[in-house]
């Protein structure tokens, strides 16, 4: 049963990592334009998901419309 002391934290950490990844993707605006992103995959030039943000701007802070 001592293995549980290892397995349970591992489960929780794995779940938390998944949750964190989802939060990050939501926060970085990856769900804002789903139909647009489906088209962008066809573009020749390298297209970063956050090109709309000025260079130097980390892009992780989503500005809310005032």
């Amino acid at each position: 049963m001592t293995i549980l002391t290892l397995l349970i934290p591992v489960t929780l950490v794995m779940g938390a990592v998944g949750l964190g990844a989802f939060f990050w993707s939501l926060h970085s605006g990856q769900y804002e334009d789903l139909s647009g992103d489906a088209e962008r995959i066809l573009f020749d030039e390298d297209d970063k998901p956050l090109a709309a943000y000025p260079p130097g701007h980390s892009g992780t802070t989503k500005e809310k419309t005032p």
Partner: peptide, 10 residues
């Protein structure tokens, strides 16, 4: 213009 980003959904 520094950057432009079109949103097809909206």
């Amino acid at each position: 213009v520094v950057a432009a980003r079109a949103n097809l959904t909206l």
